[in-house]
């Protein structure tokens, strides 16, 4: 079986600390895949390895058959992998529209002379970027705020704008790093609908890091659990929930912490 995203045995060590070790994540097309684990388990590091922020020291990453480990982040984005960030990283001073238009940057051409002379090709591309951005914003119900500065948006809208911007890069696989962090239950509800909707609409595979077990168990079809940089369990939500190693990792590490409670009743 061929996978859209195929990370085989990736790992990295920071000064003796094995942040991520021998991680294998395989996403078929159209899957909603969860990557969970207690705090400090190496989830975000795994994202950084896949997106090229760090270069994996071991293993390989393939996107639709193309090897992407070792490429620089912008090349990986071009190959069709896009992401959001745990701590929101929007371009605060730019407008909402410009944030999304920047997302389609990677699909355009940007010749200096064309830019300075305003050639028809340049104008058409700008126009197309704008149209596409507006369409995306409409999907996320952000279109009416297109001219606002991104930093002035409410928190939940900023999270959704980040997803919107990531989608503008026309990704094959979308990586979401804690998209529901800081959202209230009703926002989470609508977020999980949105994630499903964009998966269906864009035919993406989505890899999701999330602390909210309810959300993960509800929408993910496959889950990998990390602890101390190592995979401790892989399977469907039901299988993972039943895995004693997972329960131990959450209870053992975090005591009566928030995610553990949710594992038991989700």
């Amino acid at each position: 079986m061929s996978f859209l995203l195929d990370a085989q045995g990736i790992g990295i060590t920071f000064g003796g600390l094995k942040a991520v070790q021998d991680l294998t994540v395989q996403l078929p097309a159209g899957v909603l895949y969860g990557l969970i684990g207690p705090n400090g388990a190496g989830k975000t590091t795994a994202f950084n390895l896949i997106t090229g922020v760090y270069t994996p020291q071991t293993g390989s990453v393939k996107l639709a058959g193309q090897t992407i480990n070792g490429l620089r982040p912008h090349q990986i984005a071009k190959a069709g992998l896009s992401r959001t960030f745990q701590n929101i990283r929007l371009f605060g001073e730019l407008s909402v529209l410009e944030n999304v238009m920047l997302g389609s940057h990677v699909r355009g051409t940007h010749r200096l002379l064309a830019t300075l002379l305003r050639t028809p090709g340049f104008v058409a591309q700008e126009e197309a970027m704008k149209r596409r951005a507006m369409e995306l914003l409409a999907i996320f119900d952000l279109a009416r705020m297109a001219d606002e500065q991104a930093k002035n948006l409410p928190y939940g809208d900023q999270r959704r704008l980040e997803i919107c911007r990531a989608l503008a890069t026309e990704p094959k696989v979308l990586l979401l790093d804690e998209p529901a962090a800081g959202m209230n239950p009703s926002e989470k509800k609508s977020l999980s609908n949105t994630i499903r909707e964009i998966r269906d609409r864009f035919g993406l595979a989505v890899l999701l890091i999330e602390h909210d077990m309810g959300l993960v168990m509800e929408i993910c079809e496959q889950i990998t659990v990390l602890d101390h940089g190592q995979v401790i369990s892989v399977g469907t939500p039901k299988q993972v929930q039943a895995d004693p190693k997972v329960i131990e990792a959450y209870l053992g590490v975090e005591g009566s912490g928030e995610p553990s409670g949710e594992v038991s009743h989700a």
């Binding site: 997106t51 922020v53 620089r72 982040p73 912008h74 984005a77 071009k78 896009s82 992401r83 960030f85 990283r89 929007l90 371009f91 920047l102 997302g103 940057h105 990677v106 911007r165 990531a166 890069t169």
Partner: peptide, 9 residues
């Protein structure tokens, strides 16, 4: 960091 993740060289 966000810029390069969005494909800006």
């Amino acid at each position: 960091i966000a810029a390069r993740a969005m494909g800006v060289d």
